[in-house]
């Protein structure tokens, strides 16, 4: 009976690679973003984060 809800994918070649791709992709991306974020300089960050506060509608 369980064959109706389990093992749909069994006959696709290499299906087990999908979750692995997912994990690798996300971890890589997350690591890259972290590296980048922590390499940003304070002055740069202050400059960008003050953009909304410029202008004459404050």
């Amino acid at each position: 009976m369980l064959k109706f809800i389990k093992g749909h994918m069994a006959s696709i070649d290499g299906i087990e690679i999908f979750p692995l791709i997912t994990l690798v992709l996300f971890t890589t991306m997350f690591a890259l973003v972290l590296v980048w974020v922590f390499s940003l300089k304070k002055a740069e960050i202050d400059e960008v984060s003050s953009i909304p506060l410029q202008g004459n509608d404050n």
Binding site: D46, V48, S49, S50, L53
Partner: peptide, 12 residues
């Protein structure tokens, strides 16, 4: 940030 008149807590 506009309503509080201060930048966002952490841009990072």
């Amino acid at each position: 940030p506009k309503a509080a008149n201060r930048p966002v807590f952490s841009y990072r």
